[in-house]
Amino acid sequence: MSAGRPVPPNSNEYLWVAGVVRSVEKLSGTASRWNGELYEETRSNAGGSAMDDGGMTVNVDRVLKPVAQAYTAGRPLTEDELVNARDAVLTVVHEAKHLSNTLGDDSAPGATPVYSPDTLALEEGLTETWAHENVDDVIQDIGMDRAQPGLLSTESIDSYPAYTAASDELIRGAAAVSGLPQSQVREGLEQADRTDRWAAVADMVIDERLGDVMPAEHREVVRTQLVQAMRPHLADVAAAQGSELQSDVAKSIAGHQSAGRAVIALSTSTTGIENHYRDWHRDQAINQAAPDPEVDHLRKFLGGQTPPDASFRASGGDGAVPDNVRQLNSRRGHGQSLE
C-alpha cells in the first residue's frame, strides 16, 4: 500500500492540500471526488497519488516540506528551492485533477479499461495539460504567490510529452471531424468517465455528423465501430514512448502522429457511415417518389426493401466501407440488422 500515516486534518499541511483541491475544483468547474482522506506516501520515490477510492497520498519530503518552506523561509527561495516548491504544487494539482472525474464502468458499450495503455495515455495527457495551464492560477488562488512571487516565473517540465501531444491532436482532429470547437471537445473529454473517453469522442461525432441520418437504435454499434477505429493508434503512443531510440522531442512528434492516424481513422469511418445512411435515405426517397409496379415486383422478388445497416467493415485498418453486400432482413421501417 502507498498510503501510510494519515495527515492530521487540523494540520497546516492538510489544510494546504485541501485548499489546492478546492481551487482545482473551482477552476475546473467540476466537483472533486476527494473523500477528505490524506495519507503520507510510503514510497520515497513517489511524490503522491490520487487513489481510485478517492483518497490521496503526498510525500512528506518531496511535497509537504518544500511547500512549508515556501511559507516559512522568511526570504525569497533560491532557484532550486523554487523549482522544488513548484514541482510540489504541480504534483498536488495534477493528482487533484485526477479526482475531478470518475473511473466509470468498463463493461458499458464502447467503454475501455481504465488501466489500458491508450486510456491511461488520454487521462495523463489531459491531466498534465490542465495542470500546466492552471498551476499558476492555483498558486494565485491560494495566495501562495504572496509568500513566494518567484513561483510564478519558475518553469515546469512536461512529464508526458507524447501523451500531451497525442491528446491535443486527438482533440483538434475530433473538433474538425465533428465541427465542434476544440474547447467543447476538451471539456467533453475532461468531464467524461475515464472508461468513456473514447466513447465520448464517438458520441460527439455521432451527434454532430450522424444524428440526423442514423437510427437512434444503431448508436451503440456505430459508437463501438468508431472507438475501435481510433484506439489502436493511440496505443501506438505508449509503445513509441517505450522506444530507447527516440529523443523526447521525437516522442512528442510520435504522439502527435499517432493521434493524427486515430483522427484519420475517425474521419474515414465517419464519412463511410454517413454515406451509407445517406445512400439508404436517398434510395428510400426515390422509391417513394416514383412507385413503379415493375420495380415493386422486382423488389418483392429480391426479398424486400433493403434497410440501412449499422455494420461496416474496416478498409485497410483505417477506413470503413458500408457493408451493402450482405443479405439483410427487413423487420422494421429502419433496418435492425445489427451485429
Binding site: E41, G47, M51, D52, T57, V83, D87, T91
Partner: peptide
C-alpha cells in the same frame, strides 16, 4: 538536473495507482 527531477518523479504516480489497482 534539479529542473527535471520533479517531472521524472511524477511518472511514478500512475505506477503507484496501477499497483493499488
Amino acid at each position: 538536473p534539479v529542473r527535471e527531477a520533479g517531472a521524472i518523479r511524477r511518472l511514478n504516480s500512475p505506477l503507484v495507482r496501477l499497483i493499488d489497482h
